[in-house]
Design a protein around this nucleic acid. Structure first.
Ligand SMILES: [Mn+2]
Ligand SMILES: [Mn+2]
Ligand SMILES: [Zn+2]
Ligand SMILES: [Zn+2]
Lengths: 147, 147
DNA sequence: CAGCTAATGCAACATTGTAGCATTAGCTGC
DNA sequence: GCAGCTAATGCTACAATGTTGCATTAGCTG
């Protein structure tokens, strides 16, 4: 065992100046492999599937660390649970879509709320969160097919 | 004691077909009197200040009931706590501003996110939540005065 | 490979919200 | 006004999500 891993994920972690641990690599790769955002349980389930040890608290700390380092970003849904996705949060953020039917949260990279609005005088916004709620494309198709 | 109260709040509650209780009246009046949204603790503190009995669970149920009846609306902040404000949620919603400095959440009635954006094909949005984060007008003034 | 310390694992706790059930009190009809 | 019905309340216990403190492990550096 030279270094635990030399995957792209491992390089990203090393570049942040943090220690390159199995957990960090695995969690970052899980986020990178997922097209949609994942909550703690989602990540824990995937870790377990990969036969990785996983402590609840460590997972919280790992995910927070990835966000701090700009390797992931976080959004909070109406179910009060944080969801994570690979990739940092650039100055200008994108909107998200929360499907009421399947519960998934999808990124709408093309929609950037902080470029659209003028706030009342005095307010100094630093970022904007825009979340749509409704039925996602997948669920809309299924529903259409069945009905 | 004829009817507990015949304030405007009591009339609104009666019009919903629910029982007009001290707690409902007090909570609705608290929401109506507040310029900003309040979380459960805020409301509980005001109830206590008014010398009102207040059970945690009853407060949750009362606030949820007011939202159901359209007498209040709710938003969830990044601290994972729900905040409430008097007044229902009309078809078109307004944006909110969460101040990172003082923690207050303010309504931006003039900004209506669901009229602005076109989503990718297939998505069927039913409502949109737009929350700005930054420094509110009050905190901006204080900071300016001090610095 | 030794030593330093960041990262982890574990236990206990905090916050926010729910569920079940016995008791209270608002309303309705008399 | 009062009796009776049941919505609303209060209480207890529980669930979900996240945090703190501290002893142990393991990544890095020399
Ligand atoms: Mn995203
Ligand atoms: Mn509002
Ligand atoms: Zn869906
Ligand atoms: Zn402020």
């Amino acid at each position: 065992m030279p270094t635990p891993d030399s995957s792209p994920a491992a390089h990203l972690i090393a570049a942040c100046g943090g220690r390159v641990t199995r957990t960090r690599i695995a969690v970052l790769e899980i986020l990178q492999d997922s097209p949609r955002s994942l909550n703690h349980d989602d990540v824990a389930a995937r870790l377990a599937a990969d036969g990785m040890p996983h402590d609840r608290v460590t997972l919280y700390r790992t995910l927070d660390w990835l966000v701090e380092q700009g390797l992931a970003h976080r959004i909070i849904g109406p179910d009060r649970a944080r969801r994570f996705k690979a990739g940092g949060e650039p100055r200008s953020q994108h909107a998200h879509f929360h499907c009421d039917r399947c519960g998934h949260v999808l990124c709408l990279e093309s929609i950037r709320p902080d470029e659209q609005f003028t706030l009342p005088a005095g307010y100094q916004p630093e970022r904007a969160e825009l979340v749509f709620h409704g039925t996602c494309a997948d669920c809309g198709r299924q529903r259409g097919a069945k009905a």
